[in-house]
Design a protein around this nucleic acid. Sequence first.
DNA 1: CTTGCGGTTGACGCAGCGTCAGCCAATACC
DNA 2: GGTATTGGCTGACGCTGCGTCAACCGCAAG
Lengths: 252, 252
Amino acid sequence: MDVWTTAEVARLAGVSARTLRHYDAIGLLEPASHGHGGLRRYGRPELLRLQQILLLKRLGLRLDVIAEILEGDLEPVDALKRHAAELDTERSRLDRLAATVAATIRQLEGGQPMAPETWFGGLDPATEAQYRDEARRRWGQAVVERAWSTLQDLTPEERRAIPEAFNDINTRLNALREAGAPADGPAAQAVTADHYRLIAVHWGDGPNAEAYRGLGALYTDDPRFKDTYDQVADGFAAYMRAAMDAYADANL
Amino acid sequence: MDVWTTAEVARLAGVSARTLRHYDAIGLLEPASHGHGGLRRYGRPELLRLQQILLLKRLGLRLDVIAEILEGDLEPVDALKRHAAELDTERSRLDRLAATVAATIRQLEGGQPMAPETWFGGLDPATEAQYRDEARRRWGQAVVERAWSTLQDLTPEERRAIPEAFNDINTRLNALREAGAPADGPAAQAVTADHYRLIAVHWGDGPNAEAYRGLGALYTDDPRFKDTYDQVADGFAAYMRAAMDAYADANL
DNA sequence: CTTGCGGTTGACGCAGCGTCAGCCAATACC
DNA sequence: GGTATTGGCTGACGCTGCGTCAACCGCAAG
């Protein structure tokens, strides 16, 4: 009774037969012998090795790492410490993700305020015309016409998605501001890059440094914009402008 | 300028061209037209749809879920709430995993005490003989001989792994005890199942109900065992025995 | 003889692309 | 006019850890 078949080992160890065949295939746990039509026959050393494998697997180690440990090529403590660090990284990633998702849910449920970038969408004709005139003076005829025709071509569904996209960016950026991240730091600049790309999509091309800085200036100097942005949080408009200036300096 | 190629869209949106081709392949984002040798040509609606895709992707949603949302088959808020719940589950799983890994590291670094199940390994000959005699009286000749020959055949390396395996189980079970989990509850019984299987491997077969209960009795009644087990934590021996009794009742 | 159990070897599937490989077309340089 | 470069295209493999068929074989019971 010192030898077991695949199914017996599976039952004893609480794994599937397929798993054992897989471990054989990748060389992690080879049976003591292949006899009589290829039948796998496991001995006691294999059972014990399997126990060690399962112990390490329960800790979340990958099979190739487990193999290295069992071959003596890797110190268990070292591998576990590295693994613990990875777990920690992954956990904080999940934490941030969960926070972002929760914020997005609140935002969707709360009904988002109309962002000023949606100038031409859903406004009454007079106000709309006023914005368009001003935009033309600031950025020129071509840009405004492109943006205008863009918005005209949207389905109502797509149009609804625009404020969400801007609010998403505002939420993210404000979270960084509250966390004390500098506006020209890597985290805030990454979000700003998303903002730039979103603007680029609406304008049909990326704004140059001057135009982008001009847009930022609008956020702090024009009360129609400033009020909306400081509604996100007090001081947010200034933070946003600083981030945009830094972005223009570094990338445009 | 109302139409863009793959590379242009990639640059504007900050994704790889390969990604865009993938999204086309799975039908998530199809170009406005395929013209002139299969060249993909994206229009403004596609750019906007891509923005929505990337927004949702940043939240960790899977591509098929994103597709459902964009097709209008799924409410964004519902999907996000479900996703938030999944994130929470995953996060607590990682928490437990990290705790287990940390405990294992402490255990490996602290040098584990010899578990009494390693009767015949590394003891002086006289003590070893004494254990063997007693084990024979308790569980019979056959079982002891099998277990004995098992241990004889092990390499020193494999022998060192045995206490680790037992200590792993003790650590896990004691964590449950300290958390207030009942010895006959599902969590503790899952660990006990591992313990049973480990014993089964060493004995060459699973002990029956009587033998397993007898082993449990040993833990609380025999001072040599009890002392070692209560060294894990005060009262642990009794908890372990209760878990083993419950396991025997339910499964053997 | 059939049925059924338990064993075997492939091979696909999953998630989301990265990364060649091999081929075409237009442009730029000599 | 030849050619090197750029960019786009379509496959197809790779990664992780098996679950899940599919197709086939051998042995024992009914």
